[in-house]
Amino acid sequence: MNDMRVDQTMMTTDNKITARGVQVHYGTNHALKDVDVDIRDKMVTAFIGPSGCGKSTFLRCLNRMNDTVASARVTGKILLEGEDIYDPKVDPVQLRAKVGMVFQKPNPFPKSIYDNVAYGPRIHGMAGNKAELDEIVETSLRGAALWNEVKDRLTEPGTGLSGGQQQRLCIARAVATSPEVLLMDEPCSALDPIATAQVEELIDDLRSRFSVVIVTHSMQQAARVSQKTAFFHLGNLVEFNDTDKIFTSPQDPRTESYISGRIG
């Protein structure tokens, strides 16, 4: 992939996830072709590109959510802090505790707000007692900037919240398992502009503690929240660089066409 320009100095330091030669097939469809990416710690990395370019597919490889799709086949290497996540010894359950995920549509469970957030800590046995669990729930909701809005109605169902609140609840739910990486698959696409702004602010906030990977169809959003941006097109990783470089001086003509609105 000679059109891919990776800053070599970046590779050696602080890489949370290193992907090399990742290919994904859905049945006969070659959805992702030979992708190399490095995700750095404490930074927001954005994946952009037109619909069906493979950005979500790649995101779902990072915590093996593609395993739930029967026809998907992943090859190549993805290392999380040097450990191959597709190693047969790896249990995806343990992996996903470290690499959390937030989805496109807010999907709170049909449980109370408290139980939604406590779900992850409970299944992973993170709290020794009720007090610890309460603390995790509170800190997670605070971390997701939702505590003040819901602290008086923790026992009400999570589905009763507004769209933006639901998405922040899902973020709080993902944060509660204290992951190392947080994957976000178009987290704002189902939200109105005000809720979007709140979530974007939250993402910026989260960057101080995790590496965040966000898939977005909005270039403005990528420019606002991310430090690094990868541009995908037709299953190829076309360009991966610092966000401001991608948007100001793209190296690849396809990237330029996309950000100037000619393809996409």
Binding site: D87, P121, T139, G143, S208, R209
Partner: peptide, 14 residues
């Protein structure tokens, strides 16, 4: 900073 602490890092291979 308001985020729960992770325990000592555990390998996903084990």
């Amino acid at each position: 900073t308001g985020i729960p602490a992770a325990g000592p890092r555990r390998s996903i291979l084990i």
